[in-house]
């Protein structure tokens, strides 16, 4: 199978969906002329014109609200938010408006809206360009939240997000953009709400998504060298969460570690750990461990940044603690 980058995979997804459905359009800061800060919009204005690929002023609240308004009248906007940190500028439009409007209308309105938000820490970008904010949006009822880890899923999930009738927050870790992976030439979709066991194992389950999934896979490889068979589950979609896949895996292994780059305190891992313990209490051989960022803003200096973010060694250490329970 051919290999393309994560950024190119998302570009293909948008190109295919825009060709398929004239209601789909893109907007964001620096996407048309510049092609996106990671090249993920390159070539699209040439093919679809500046009516459908729009450079915008720096007006996040109005951009989110406008994407919502366009969705309400039947268009299918894909809004790029430059850096996920900037979602925080538009919290009224996200939380009070986009997430709630269908519900408040008694189910009469539809919100086919995609918000792309590059998140995560990369190359000492510092506290305003490094956050992973999925926990905020999982806490708010009304968003579907996806966080792909591979080019194949990046493309298939973005296509599904664009076809969804509901607001989808598409979180893409900036460190993933240049990574290559196999992506089929022929058209495919990756459904929202499905996790996947990407490495089978019987001794414990490592649960992760986005960039941290690759760290979990490295940890699994290191554990294999020590004779431990770690199963790795890629969540892919964080809401709705694929509890069936998750529960089945942990029921089998009896031990679990949840790892993500978002803050550990009240992060997605906290909810997942609590639910696994509620549902599988008698099957668990150890408490579910959580790995996440330390509870500080993401610092600038490389050794400080490294200390705060979850590393392969942190996942390995958590796995060993979980395995130590008898």
């Amino acid at each position: 199978m051919r290999e393309i980058t994560f950024a190119e995979a998302t570009r293909e997804a948008m190109e295919e969906e825009m060709a398929r459905d004239p209601r789909v359009f893109l907007m964001g800061e620096d996407i048309a002329k510049q092609g996106g800060i990671f090249g993920q919009f390159k070539g699209l204005p040439e093919r679809f014109g500046l009516e459908r690929v729009r450079d915008t002023p720096i007006s996040e609240p109005t951009l989110v609200g406008a994407a919502l308004g366009a969705a309400l009248v039947g268009a299918r906007p894909v809004l790029d938010i430059h850096f996920a940190d900037f979602l925080l500028l538009a919290m009224d439009e996200l939380a009070n408006q986009a997430a709630s409007i269908r519900y408040m209308s008694g189910g009469k309105l539809r919100v086919p809206l995609v918000i792309r938000a590059p998140d995560g820490a990369i190359r000492s970008a510092g506290a305003h360009h490094s956050k992973s904010l999925e926990a905020l949006f999982l806490h708010l009822p009304g968003f579907k939240v996806v966080a792909p880890a591979t080019p194949k899923d990046a493309k298939g999930l973005l296509k599904s997000a664009i076809r969804s009738e509901d607001p989808v927050l598409y979180l893409e870790h900036k460190a993933l953009y240049p990574r290559k992976g196999p992506v089929p030439e022929e058209e495919y979709l990756v459904p929202l709400g499905r996790a996947e066991v990407i490495r089978p194992g019987r001794d414990l389950t490592l649960i992760s998504y986005s960039l941290t999934l690759h760290k979990a896979l490295e940890a699994a490889e290191l554990l294999a060298g020590e004779g431990v068979q770690a199963e790795v589950v890629d969540l892919k979609t964080l809401y709705p969460l694929d509890w069936d896949t998750l529960l089945a895996s942990v029921e089998r292994t009896g031990r679990a570690v949840v790892a993500h780059e978002g803050w550990r305190f009240l992060g997605p891992g906290a909810e997942i750990a609590a639910t696994l313990e509620e549902r599988l209490w008698e099957k668990l051989k150890a408490p579910v461990a959580r790995v996440g960022a330390a509870h500080v803003p993401i610092p600038f200096s490389p050794p400080l940044e490294h200390r705060v973010l979850p590393q392969v060694e942190d996942i390995l250490k958590a796995a060993k603690e979980v395995l130590a329970w008898r």
Partner: peptide, 19 residues
């Protein structure tokens, strides 16, 4: 929300345009 409808209205206008 005071002014909450303004971005939505602008977006509805944009949607009409795009469509």
């Amino acid at each position: 929300i005071v002014a909450g409808g303004i971005p939505i209205a602008v977006g509805a206008g944009l949607g009409l345009r795009v469509l």
